[in-house]
């Protein structure tokens, strides 16, 4: 569904910007992908003996699919909370550059950092991609309420999916287990590809895929960080070099 034009009177109040954010979450097809992923997380939580409340709290508080899968599977396989915390911390590194790249689209010269805390909490892959796609169509002074509506909408979709998945768990066919787990790499790949704007972004994606197996041989525990910073920096270097010629 198209957003109203930036000079439309619909944007005059923050609350209507929030509602437009909610509506965008309800109408984007990426919500269907989120729904399926979080059915899987709900079912995983059920099968490993967590309470429904715990699973819902993990969606609201953690708000990152891969981290929730690591958290649930490690804890249920007997890992200590500290081992789990370390693994989740490493998996969450990506959130830092994602937040850094998306917040400048939301702020105005008068925005306080405290107003950015909740929008930053909502940042995860789907939110990141949809902000890049939608925020340019939103008047700058309404982007924070819009993003809050968008994030609230996505969390609502995922929490509902958790309830459905938790309830269905025992009846989910085995065949779908692998299909739900494949959703994460598939959506991450296509989302990142859609967010590519410049040569540097495409190169970063391709080099990031190629360098990970090499960095993986180092077995440092932070292989993703090493391959990510290396691939991103090479891609940026190529971008600089091409522009300077």
């Amino acid at each position: 569904m198209a957003l109203p034009s930036p000079d439309s009177t619909t944007w005059t109040s923050p609350s209507s910007a929030f509602l437009l954010g909610l509506r965008s979450a309800a109408t984007t097809v990426l919500s269907l992908v989120l729904f399926a992923t979080y059915i899987g997380i709900g079912a995983l939580g059920h099968d490993t003996g967590f309470s429904l409340f715990w699973v819902l709290a993990s969606t609201v508080l953690v708000w990152a699919g891969p981290a929730q899968i690591i958290l649930i599977s490690m804890l249920s396989s007997g890992a200590t909370w500290l081992q789990t915390a370390i693994a989740v911390t490493v998996s969450a590194i990506r959130l830092f550059p994602m937040v850094v790249s998306v917040l400048p689209m939301m702020r105005t010269p008068t925005t306080k950092k405290s107003q950015l805390i909740l929008p930053a909490h909502f940042v995860a892959v789907t939110m990141w991609v949809e902000c890049f796609r939608l925020l340019p169509q939103v008047p700058r002074e309404r982007r924070i309420p819009f993003a809050l509506g968008l994030g609230t909408g996505f969390v609502t979709v995922c929490v509902s999916a958790n309830v459905v998945g938790y309830g269905l768990a025992a009846n989910l066919p085995q065949l779908f287990g692998a299909a739900i787990l494949l959703l994460t790499p598939l959506t991450f790949l296509l989302s990142t590809a859609r967010n590519c704007r410049e040569l540097a972004d495409y190169l970063a994606l391709i080099l990031g895929l190629a360098l990970f197996p090499l960095a993986g041989m180092l077995n440092t525990g932070v292989d993703i960080l090493i391959s990510g910073v290396a691939a991103g920096t090479i891609a940026y270097g190529v971008h600089r070099w091409r522009r300077s010629r």
């Binding site: 599977s73 790249s101 972004d201 990970f212 990510g228 691939a231 920096t233 891609a235």
Partner: peptide
């Protein structure tokens, strides 16, 4: 521009990791 490139490359690493060392039923 650099931060976005690093974000994309780290996401690419997450994708590669899941495909090379898949969790559970995958």
């Amino acid at each position: 521009v650099w931060v976005r490139a690093v974000a994309s490359a780290i996401l690419a690493g997450v994708i590669a990791q899941i495909l090379l060392m898949p969790p559970g039923a995958l």
